[in-house]
Nucleic acid binder design. Structure first.
Length: 818
DNA sequence: CGCTTCGGACACTCAACGCA
DNA sequence: GCGTTGAGTGTCCGAAGCGT
């Protein structure tokens, strides 16, 4: 019994407390409390917060862990009298009993096969260790030659290699329609992939290639899957003993606890599914809606007998659906307060994952659920949780061979496609989670060969198909994600410099700005030709795809020219480039906000809201320390004030807030300069008059002049922002056209309400000469004033705060991509 | 004397098994 | 499918030992 003491969770349970200690009355065993363990059996299910409490008496159903360990009577209050007296923490275990260990005797056949394996393993080691004890049944195996694995970068690697091949856009090796001739050379690189009943297992070629013929016996043994897994669960089987020890990750002991009561009423499940289809699936295209919809529908008919992988998926869908709703919508549509619903379903997802033995899982469905779960958790949990579990997810995916293209293993088109979707979503999550933590992505480009998912709609493919469906020309349900994936590759190539010496590092470091611009332009041409030119801007998802593409291209351009990316911190940039950076940054911020707030795309705002445009914000504010007057500046101030009000309120309390603090200091400085300039303009207007803003100089002393970053400036009214017509504008469809950037212009959102507010005037497409009106504080180049200070502040924050391995650096890790 | 440790009795649960 | 069996699990009595 004692061996299970550590199995219990440390989740305290709130009940009424008693400060008095009473010695346990000496009662014969026969008269033990009748309420003594009405030991919760595995079918009982209650919410986690009070799951172990006896609802009627207010007492816990079980003894606290200390009393249990000491084998003394526990009064089951919280804290119990024994713990209270000893002044130690009183911890009650979760509900339910520890899972029983099987009474079934070890299988003789399994033992026999184990013995065979042992024999093979020992004989393999014979050549290495001459002193090895002789094996009972020696197997003659020649010494196996192992060769060290060489880095895969080719010797003739050149800058040109990173550019997309002219004939297939930029994707190159990931292009799905690769010539068959290449597959032959790939065969040698393949490991072995076994896929059956939704499960798969992958073994690297490094393992197989190292085997001699004699070791084929081991291969046969491993291949022999005739064993009944119900009797002897393989890794990943939910009943595996190890599965009982997976709940430690999620701090809960009773994985045998039924989660039945955590499901919403069956009649409400279609609502959750509908929300998921509308709000999540279009932007995270991972599932096959007809196939998985049927799965959910059937499962909801009998919630008592849902398979564990399906159970994980269902709770993930509930969680994802709630994540995308506002609190009001959550109450109206689901009848639940959003925070409570998030807590409930997150707990259920985590428990379901533990129950499904996700650490050993071979189920694609479980991995798909984990991906969706982490993507949604990222919206509300900014700790390292997502980053850490993403690493785990990558390992699990590699275990299933998701990083190898299913087509090469002869998998069905449907299976292949689902695996591709999963891998690229994992890759995307890896990039984003890494950026959150300021680390490099875990997935290296050389480590996988999974092709892009096909540019198709769900209706084009089904599980029974024998031949791969034909890709569509133009926009499909996959287009948004394909654009993200395409850009992700270029982003990595632009910004990622692996540690150590090697081709990749040398290559990245040697890229000139022109090379990078060339890469971005190539990407633009590829996206334009393949997707964007086919997009219908009246379709919200198409508009989002085009806008996001435009946004990322603009951000790439920003990063290439950004002070972070330059050894001189931007001092050597020509004024024209700085002007373009300034305007592009403002536009990036504006369109990011528009994606979150535009009513036709609001349903996907939950995803867009996880991207704060730090680099653009930082750059604009740093510029506002020196650009103090002019319509461009007025507009910038309006944009920045809104961003500070909105994003600032959501990030200050979390890790990304580390960057927010120095930004606030920079903001104070910029505001002070702005104030000085406005006062100066009021006294000496450029045109000799008092100027239009003079009457609005309702500048009040106080917060603005104190320099205290903790004060709230939200109520401060910027004079120039009230009367200047520019300030009332919204992002315009052709705003960058005057900047001669090689990108497609932003398009208006499907709902033109916002754009109509500008009366169609192109207020943002200013004449370049307008910049001459933007008065700089200093005529000489001081435009990076504040930038160095901000970087120092940030570094101090990261040193004083939580570990932030890389921080803002020249490889652009600070940048938030898509 | 107060307190802790721990062997072991007892109650409860449920997987395995036999039987109809 | 159902009843029985018995091993696994949880609780806590009470003897033994230790410290003050």
């Amino acid at each position: 019994m004692a061996q299970f003491d550590d199995d219990f969770s440390t989740s305290p349970v709130e009940t009424n407390s008693s400060g008095t200690f009473a010695m346990p009355t000496t009662t014969p065993n026969s008269s033990r409390e009748p309420s003594d363990p009405p030991t919760t059996n595995g079918k009982q299910s209650t919410p986690p917060a009070n799951c172990a409490a006896n609802a009627s008496s207010g007492l816990n159903a079980r003894s606290c862990t200390t009393c249990r360990k000491r084998k003394v009577k526990c009064d089951k209050r919280h804290p119990c009298s024994n713990c209270n007296r000893a002044a130690i923490e009183c911890i009650f275990p979760g509900p339910g009993r520890a899972p029983r260990r099987s009474r079934k005797p070890p299988d003789t056949e399994l033992l026999a096969r184990l013995r065979r394996l042992e024999g093979v393993v020992q004989s393999l080691g014979k050549g290495i260790d001459e002193e090895t004890e002789p094996v009972n049944e020696p197997v003659e195996v020649p010494k196996v030659e192992y060769e060290p694995v060489q880095p895969s970068a080719p010797d003739n690697f050149k800058v040109e290699d990173i550019r997309p091949p002219k004939n297939c856009g930029m994707i190159g090796r990931y292009e799905p329609n690769r010539a068959d001739g290449e597959t032959g050379s790939m065969t040698k690189e393949f490991g072995r992939l076994k896929v059956e009943n939704g499960k798969s297992r992958y073994v690297s070629n490094k393992f197989w290639n190292s085997m001699s013929e004699e070791v084929a016996e081991m291969r046969d043994i491993l291949d022999d899957d005739t064993e009944d897994e119900d009797d002897y669960p393989s890794p990943g089987s939910a009943s595996s003993a190890s599965a009982n020890h997976q709940s430690f990750i999620f701090s809960f002991s009773s994985t045998i606890l039924s989660l039945r009561n955590f499901h919403p009423p069956p009649a409400q499940i279609p609502t959750y599914w509908a929300i998921f289809k509308t709000n999540v699936d279009p932007v995270i295209k991972l599932l096959h809606i007809p196939h998985h919809g049927k799965m959910i529908s059937q499962a909801s008919l009998d919630l008592d007998h849902v398979s564990k992988p399906t159970e994980v998926l269902m709770f993930t869908i509930y969680f994802a659906a709630v994540t995308t709703l506002s609190n009001d919508d959550c109450i109206v549509q689901l009848g639940l307060e959003k925070p409570a619903a998030l807590r409930k379903y997150r707990f259920a997802v985590e428990q379901a994952l533990a129950r499904a033995g996700f650490l050993n899982t071979q189920e694609l469905l479980v991995l798909q659920s984990v991906l969706l779960f982490l993507t949604c958790v990222r919206r509300s949990d900014d700790t390292r949780y997502v980053w850490t579990l993403t690493g785990l997810l990558i390992r699990l995916a590699q275990g299933l061979g998701i990083h190898r293209d299913g087509q090469q293993f002869g998998l069905s088109p449907f299976e292949t496609e689902m695996r591709r979707r999963l891998w690229w979503q994992i890759s995307s999550l890896d990039t984003r989670a890494s950026e959150d933590q300021g680390t490099d992505p875990s997935i290296a480009e050389q480590s996988f060969d999974t092709k892009f998912p096909l540019n198709i709609n769900d209706e084009d493919i089904d599980p029974g198909m024998k031949d791969m469906p034909t890709e569509h020309e133009g926009a499909t349900e996959m287009t948004f994600d394909l654009i993200r994936y395409s850009m992700g590759i270029t982003v990595r190539r632009l910004s990622y410099a692996p540690p150590g010496e090697g081709h990749c590092r040398t290559m990245n470091a040697s890229l000139s700005i022109e090379d990078k611009e060339h890469m971005i332009e190539d990407l633009h041409q590829y996206l334009e030709k393949k997707y964007l030119s086919h997009c219908d801007m009246n379709v919200p998802l198409h508009w989002v795809a085009a806008t996001v593409a435009r946004l990322i291209l603009a951000k790439m351009w920003l990063v290439v020219h950004h002070p972070f990316s330059r050894s001189d911190a931007g001092a050597g940039l020509p004024q024209e480039t700085k002007d373009r950076l300034f305007r592009t940054s403002i536009e990036v911020i504006e369109f990011s906000r528009l994606l979150e707030t535009e009513k036709t795309t609001l349903r996907w705002g939950w995803l867009f809201r996880t991207y704060v445009q730090w680099h653009a914000i930082a750059f604009v504010i740093s510029q506002l320390c020196t650009r103090t007057i002019g319509p461009e500046v007025d507009k910038a101030w309006m944009v920045i004030e809104v961003v500070f009000d909105d994003w600032g309120g959501t990030v200050t309390s979390n890790q990304r807030g580390m960057l927010w603090k120095p930004l606030r200091k920079l903001m104070v400085k910029a505001r002070a300069e702005r104030l000085k300039a406005l006062e100066k303009q009021a006294r000496f207007p450029l045109d000799g008059s008092l100027g239009p803003t003079t009457s609005l100089f309702n500048l009040t002393p106080g917060p603005m002049s104190t320099g205290d970053p903790s004060l709230d400036y939200s109520t401060f009214e910027m004079p120039g922002l009230v009367t200047d017509p520019v300030s009332a504008s919204t992002p315009d469809s052709n705003s960058l056209s005057g900047l001669q950037l090689p990108f497609v212009p932003f398009a208006q959102p499907p709902s033109t309400d916002i754009m109509n507010a500008t009366n169609g005037t192109d207020q943002w497409n200013l004449d370049p000469s307008v910049f001459s009106q933007d008065r700089l504080i200093e005529e000489n180049d001081m435009s990076w004033t504040g930038w160095d200070d901000m970087i120092k502040d940030y570094q101090m924050e990261t040193e004083n705060g939580q570990s932030h391995p890389t921080g803002p650096q020249q490889d652009g890790n600070l940048m938030s991509w898509w």
